[in-house]
Design a protein around this nucleic acid. Structure first.
Length: 436
RNA sequence: GCCGCCGUAGUAUAGCCCGGCCUAGUAUGCGGGCCUGUCGAGCCCGUGACCCGGGUUCAAAUCCCGGCGGCGGCGCCA
């Protein structure tokens, strides 16, 4: 599939089937009387291949054979009637315009013949984006967001933006990045949670595609300090099931959308995004704990599952034929103050969505009753006075509501079989990385 | 924060355990040549590296100490 570019200048038809394609040389072969140049641009994940023959276009042949890997150029031409390349669509060029040449040889291999360590890969990500594999990963990322927007808009949700500079976190300041905000103390937002909820008094169905800033000192393959999520919140719900339904439909919509529209990307990555069908399996938190305990894993009473336990649960569930499943009914002890408690006082309406043993989303029904919310905060040892801006909204007919946050990078990891979450974001912010 | 592993040309690696045979090997890149519509092309020639500082020793890429950097695990995690 050849995509039409939104940038007219980068890709336009100048009439009579003549096409202008721009990009960088990622591979060049001089083979006797023929020069073969592969261009990586934005028209396709696979390279555009220009073939120049000594007897057909002698001047361009001479020009092309001297070009370096990494050169930025545009060519005008047409699709070749002869298609012998196994790598991309072949073109016959009528003209080539050089825009920029590398000052020195590229530090990394943009065709992927020589392996690159993750650290180097992150450092030179912008160059490696010329590599079809890397390009495919980030085109798919864009596809996830594109699909999510379509899904929500179709369902009548409105896209919102909540502040990323906030006055307080929901549960103390330990995991927040402080920022100087004139004479006040402020933080980077860890989650749009509280603001999404406030919006339930005026816009009962919202979604937001947003960064999460988390100051935890993780050093693992599945944590970032700046990650992105697809968040949603909906009001006038009949229960937590309404929220879970939205989430499972969204995830299925995304995978179907990618399967259909990102075929070439999957081919380049050598994967097939698996088809998911809803409803997803629901298991109760206690059932999960029982399953794990019968496998000899210790789970302290009322505590959340560790990552290792979640991974093990993924294996157990896979044996039963479930790759993606909800864990529902988390104990109050293990959740935030804003989740609605069940009548028994022990359980809540919080859920997690796990995909192949990794938590990719969490959410639930929130407590919308003002006095219950105050009670909950006190129970969690929080001072309601610190949340006045939030609580105020609950005084004016807050409908029952709930929502979720879906981690984009984590979804990508499981969908594309990435080993490290850092492979799923272009510019990485982790424990030590702050540039580029 | 704790624990483990690692740091060798542009990139990716071998050598380190057991110091000398390392003038540091290989692949790829880069420069040159041959050949050929190649597709991880092939063949030949060339090019280029032991993270930093200190120590042990006749002798250190190799052993020891410190620093810096990377990877992973755990803790922690809306």
């Amino acid at each position: 599939m050849v995509y039409s570019s939104v940038i007219d200048n980068a890709n336009w038809f100048s009439g009579y089937g003549v096409l202008r394609i721009c990009g960088w040389i990622i591979r060049k072969k001089v083979v006797g009387k023929v020069v073969i140049i592969e261009i990586s641009g934005d028209t396709s994940v696979k390279p555009s291949v220009i073939v120049l023959k000594k007897d057909r276009e002698p001047e361009l042949y001479e020009k092309a054979r001297k070009l370096d890997i990494g050169t930025a150029l545009c060519f005008e031409g047409e699709v070749s009637p002869v298609q012998r390349s196994k790598r991309g669509v072949e073109y016959i060029a009528k003209s080539i315009v050089i825009y920029s040449e590398p000052l020195k040889p590229l530090p990394v291999d943009t065709v992927g013949k020589v392996p690159t360590l993750l650290d180097t890969r992150i450092k030179y990500r912008y160059l490696l984006l010329r590599n079809p594999v890397e390009k495919a990963i980030f085109r798919i990322r864009a596809g996830i967001i594109e699909a999510a927007r379509k899904y929500f808009i179709d369902k009548g949700f409105i896209e919102v933006h909540t502040p990323k500079i906030v006055a307080t976190g929901a549960e103390g300041g330990a995991t927040l990045f402080p920022v100087k905000y004139f004479e006040q103390e402020a933080y980077l937002s860890q989650s749009p949670q509280l603001y999404k909820q406030i919006l339930m008094t005026g816009l009962p169905r919202v979604f937001e595609i947003t960064p999460y800033f988390r100051a935890e000192k993780f050093n693992t393959t599945r944590h970032l300090n700046e990650s992105w999520g697809i968040d949603a919140e909906q009001g006038f719900i009949n229960g937590v099931e309404d929220v879970m339904k939205t989430l499972e439909e969204l995830v299925c919509y995304i995978t179907d959308y990618l399967r259909e529209n990102y075929v070439e990307e999957q081919e380049v990555l050598g994967i097939e995004i698996e088809r998911l069908t809803h409803p997803f399996k629901r298991i109760k938190f206690e059932e999960a704990v029982d399953m794990l305990r019968s496998e000899g894993i210790e789970i302290p009473e009322g505590e959340d599952l560790t990552d290792a336990a979640e991974k093990k649960l993924g294996e157990i569930m896979a044996e039963k034929g479930y790759k993606i499943y909800f864990i529902v009914g988390f104990p109050w002890k293990a959740t935030g103050f804003y989740y609605m408690r069940e009548e028994d006082g022990y359980h809540t309406r919080k859920f997690d969505l796990d995909y192949k043993g990794l938590e990719i989303a969490s959410g639930g029904q929130r407590e919308h009753r003002y006095y219950k919310l105050i009670e909950a905060m006190k129970d969690k040892g929080l001072n309601p006075e610190n949340f006045e801006f939030y609580l105020e909204a609950f005084k004016y007919s807050m409908p029952p509501h709930g929502g979720f946050g879906l981690g984009i990078e984590r979804l990508m990891m499981k969908m594309l079989n990435l080993e490290n979450i850092r492979e799923a974001i272009i510019f990485v912010r982790d424990r030590t990385r702050i540039v580029p």
